[in-house]
Nucleic acid binder design. Structure first.
Lengths: 220, 220
DNA sequence: ACCTGAACACCGTTCAAGT
DNA sequence: ACCTGAACACCGTTCAAGT
């Protein structure tokens, strides 16, 4: 065709829809993402969105992939592979922590593009480390499971704090109180750990786990 | 009061509701759990359920807790603590694998009773191992994160297979084909791993990770 | 080709009214 | 104390009709 600029500036597009989806998810959470709310933001009808997007799952998955792609694009520097893996892991941990909805989207669509993006990056570094060929897949898969699994779990924790309104310390303080009120017979360990909960650093523990896996990898 | 058996046999009760919730979740998945469907199964009105249960979140959380409690009640034997931890981890892995909805319920209500149940069990074993006092919480928390995180992630994988109808091998075969069709420039690692995907054992990898953490714990 | 917006078939939750 | 079931305020998705 000859005309190549027929698109109106205010026309809908997949990109614009997904961009606005991210804004909506960030501002109003997972249950705030509604075709009606999205349509209003885009100044269009609810049905129009379906021309560019298959359904709500597609919407969520695409928004998730966008965030994952951004998180992975940052740490590209050439450094020792272990260092790159740590950087990738933390970038994902922080991205999911900042947007808990990314976590549930990741869990909902397991072997899709976002996961493959991460696996690829991890795999390339696993190769650089020098892990023998027959162990590369298991190593990359273990890292992938750990990173995504723990990050999602952590983000869920953080989200509940945000939902209850208070700051992190206050929430954890309340949980700690609840723990110290548990039955002494059934929950001796948890009771005695109540005091440590509020001063606990999840991000540091996450990194400790990564280092543990990397150490195990080096031994094999 | 004097009369202590006024309850009709067909009366509703929290237990009966949760029991039927589990049946419904198992048979029709997470989106099959509906107050209307549940009411029909219980031969009552939708609103009656609200007399025994706060809301849908409460329903899901209670069903989840029931399953977690069952999974933890099995492996009680006195064995070396590392062995008990492995047994607990696998029991949870299998329970969540069999019921993916437990995974998302666990993620939705992070620091609630089900998680505390698991933490307590792990913590007691961590103590038995002889981990020094100031490291016990971090150790138990690391195990908890890993077990729940990876199990949830694995269950999500398994679920997608079930949803697509085919058996596990067939699904993974298709994913493997999709992987081998990825762009050679951008996804060299994933492409070369395509063949290994269908013969990969997630449960074994899960256990490998547990052993890795236990080994790290023994060193400290 | 792309958009509109009414309509359909659902939801969770509430609440007056019953027993 | 416990249950009923209609009613309310929403959903995702479809689809004739428009441009």
């Amino acid at each position: 065709m000859m005309k190549n600029a027929p698109r109106r500036e205010d026309g809908l597009s997949r990109e614009r829809i997904i961009e606005e989806t991210i804004v909506l998810l960030d501002s109003h959470g997972e249950k705030g993402l509604t075709f009606r709310a999205l349509a209003e933001r885009l100044a269009t009808g609810a049905g129009a969105i379906y021309w560019h997007v298959a359904n709500k799952d597609d919407l969520l998955a695409s928004a998730c992939d966008e965030i994952v792609a951004r998180a992975l694009s940052a740490p590209l520097e050439d450094a020792p592979p272990e260092e790159v893996i740590r950087a990738l892991a933390l970038a994902l941990f922080d991205a999911i922590d900042a947007r808990p909805w990314v976590g549930s989207a990741l869990t909902r669509a397991p072997l899709e593009l976002p996961m493959v993006r991460i696996l690829e990056r991890l795999g390339q570094q696993v190769r650089s480390i020098g892990v023998p060929a027959q162990g590369q897949f298991a190593a990359a898969a273990a890292l992938l499971s750990y990173i995504v699994g723990v990050s999602v779990q952590n983000a869920a924790n953080a989200q509940i704090g945000r939902m209850l309104g208070g700051d992190r310390t206050a929430i954890l303080g309340e949980v700690a109180q609840a723990w110290s009120r548990l039955d002494a017979e059934a929950y001796p360990f948890t009771r005695s750990m109540a005091a440590q909960l509020p001063v606990h650093d999840d991000r540091a523990d996450f990194l400790t786990g990564i280092n543990l896996i990397l150490r195990g990898l080096a031994q094999s």
